[in-house]
Each structure stands twice: as C-alpha cells, then as structure tokens.
Amino acid sequence: MNRVALTSKKFLLPGLMIIALILLVTSPSYISAYKVMLLTSILMYIVVSVSWAIFSGPTGYISLASAAFFGVGIYTAAILGRILPLTYVIIIGGLVSVVLALIVGVITLRLKGMYFAIFTFGLVELLKHFLLWWEINITGTRGRFVISVHSETVFYVMIIIFVAVLLTAYLIKHSKYGLALQSIGEYEEAAEHIGINVTMVKIATFAISSFFIGSAGAIIATRWTYVDPYIAFNPIFSFMPVLMSIFGGLGQLFGPVLGAAFFAYLEESLITKFPYHYMLIFGIILVVAILYLPDGLIGLAKKWKKGSLSSGLVELLQKRQKGRKEV
C-alpha cells in the first residue's frame, strides 16, 4: 500500500466515524420512537460484544460470564434505582461487575480452554439461583420493579457507553497490553518468560471489559420495568456476544461491532416478520456463517479487497476451460 492511500485512510476512518456518531446522536429528532429503541438494542449488543472481545478476542479465553455481568448491572439498577440518580446507578452497576470479574479472575484464570468457559457459564447459573433462593427465602418477593427512564435518555446513555467501550477497546488494542494479550493467546508460557505478568494482565483486562457490560445492563434494565433472576441472568447474553463477535470477525475492532449490529437487527426483524420461525432462520444463518466465514464479515471484506475472491473465481473458470480443451 502506498503512502497516500495510507494517509487518506488515516483521516477517512475517523471522519466517517464522527459523521456516523453525529447522525446517531441526532437521530431521535428524525426517526420514529420505535427505531430509537431498536438502535438502543443494537448499541447494547455492540457494547456487550465489543467488551467480550476486548478480553476473549486476543487471548482466546472464551468467557461465558457476560450474562453474569449483565445481570449484576440489571439488579444494581433494580435495587439502587430508587435511591440514587441514574449516573451513579450506571457507574455502580459497572463497578459491581468489575468486582465480580476480579473475584472470578483470581479464581479461574488459571483454568484454560473449555474449563474456563464452563466455569464462567456456571457463574451465571450460580448467581441466578442464588438470587432466586434469596428472593424466595429472605425477601419473599419474586422479581423487582425498575424505575423507568425516558427511552431517549436510555438511548443517549447507551451511546456514551458505546463510545467509551470503543475508545477503551481501541486504546487497549494499540497499547503494549494489547500486544501482550495477543501473545498470551498464542503461548502463555513464552509470554511469561519475556517478562509479561500474565496473571495481572489477564485479570485487569477481564475486569475492565466487564465494566461496560455491567453498566449496559444497568441502563437497559430501566427499559424493562420489571426484572427477575431469569430475565436478568438470561444465558442468551453469554452466548450472543460470542456468536456476534465471531460472526463479525475477531481480529479487528470493527468485527464485533459489525457482527453485533447485523445480528441485533436481524433478530429484531425476524421476530417481527416470522415470530414462530425466527430462531430456526437465525440458527441456519449462524451455521452458514461459521461454515463459510471462518474469519467473519471482516475476513470476507478483506478477501474481497485483496481480490482473492474474484481471482479465485477466474482461476476456477480457467481450470474448467483447460479441462474442456483437454477433453
């Protein structure tokens, strides 16, 4: 790539992003209230997916704890929403997630591969059943009401969290810790032996990334007005970020963003158009994506750019012609 292309790309991307952000911020004035809510959902999925990918993308530790952080945020909003202003509730929701992530990190980050994934998923179930037990035996209630907030406020708060998570992901990725996380994903032992405090880097990143999931949970809870442990700790929020990020492509920051935006929109439109078959269609699309897009949407875009897709086709055609001639 030549220098001109590089520099123009350097300014093009931030420019486009700022324009997109301005469009997003001003959107409530010219789109319907329903679309604002749809955008909020999409942003929420992007926040959760990007947060997940901050840690799990480079290290390859598949965390299924997202639903736990999300649920903790939701319950924070349910409990503190009446007594504290919204800003505090959201920040505390994030911080409680961080504390939870630190505890989980210290206990589990020695686990690798499948064991880590299963433990983190167990955490979601553990918290859910603990809360159920608590509500049945201690408070004698079932679920909680959450103070509702105007949907535009929810939208703007979600935009702030969205920008914050993207900035954080970008800064981590381009710092020396981003490189360290990648090296941990490749060869943890070697990473340790060149001076990387592997345990510290892993736990700190895991905790930082959980903050955004918790705060996203805290703000989205205000839209749901009623939550119980089954709603708050819904395992779908553990699996969706994984699927969305892989679908979008893990190597790049924009992979999870694209994947989450695509899936969130797809889910919404499928639910409205095919309420009975949407899960089926959803599943088929996922299977096809995993089979044919190993590097996700980003990988596909890169292939396209390189021209290997078209040149591959040309090659194939040439081979066929050759075959014919020989016959």
């Binding site: 490189l179 990648q182 090296s183 490749e186 060869y187 032992e189 070697a190 990473a191 032996h193 060149i194």
Partner: peptide, 13 residues
C-alpha cells in the same frame, strides 16, 4: 532470559 526446546514464537504476531 531463555529460549525453549520446542520453539514458542507468537506465530500470528
């Protein structure tokens, strides 16, 4: 510092 008997370079970096 050390190296390893079976090389452990970070292949994708």
């Amino acid at each position: 510092a050390r190296t390893f008997q079976l090389v452990k370079v970070f292949g994708n970096l």
